[in-house]
Amino acid sequence: MKVLLIIPAYNEEENILNTVTTIKEYSEEIDYIVINDGSKDNTLQILKDNNIKHINLVENLGIGGAVQTGYKYAYENGYDIAIQFDGDGQHDINYLPQICEPIINGQANMCIGSRYLDKTSSEFQSTFMRRLGKNIISMIIRMCYRKKITDPTSGFRAIDRKIIELFSKEYPVDYPEPESIVNVLNERYKIEEVSVSMNERQGGTSSIKILNSMYYMFKVSLAILIDSLNKKKVK
């Protein structure tokens, strides 16, 4: 099984080298690709200087467009599993076997690393507002699909070849994490969650600012409800 780690990076000069070094320390064998999303800081220089495999987006596309580039790369190069792994050091590479397991066993097409599945194991569960936000998103997905996703905004996720193909053709731009889950459910593929713990952000700023979270929630909810209209009928 060919596995690819997709590492989107936007203005991650402080973290990206660390992230990649950790991956290389974990295993020399593992394939990865950093997607530099038109960073304005020295991210690109760091990638070049340290001989890190990367794709440099000529314009900034946002997280959705960046990750999709990775999926396209994975699709073209015949990878069986693609794992999104954030470049900011939030995700822990040691959970790699766990997150791949449901896919290798054929239990799921997509596997999400959840911070909330097992409450005790995770040190970083983020702020109250964000927890409230993800609860609302979870609830909406549950209402529309009768499927419990405990951490719909988690960016740590593995997908199999079928979904690589799906995502390389069509991937949401606006709120990619929750929306892509809905797209997968629309196609009636299976999603599993495994418990992971995430680190506090090591630097940089989160793409979701707390002040904007209410507005974000409203838009995400609406986006999910709209996406859910495209649910495939059971034949």
Binding site: I55, N56, L57, V58, E59, L61, G65, Q68, T69, K72, Y73, E76, V173
Partner: peptide, 11 residues
């Protein structure tokens, strides 16, 4: 978006 992606992949 698709153009930027394809160009970047090609590069």
């Amino acid at each position: 978006i698709s153009l930027v992606q394809e160009i970047s992949l090609l590069k």
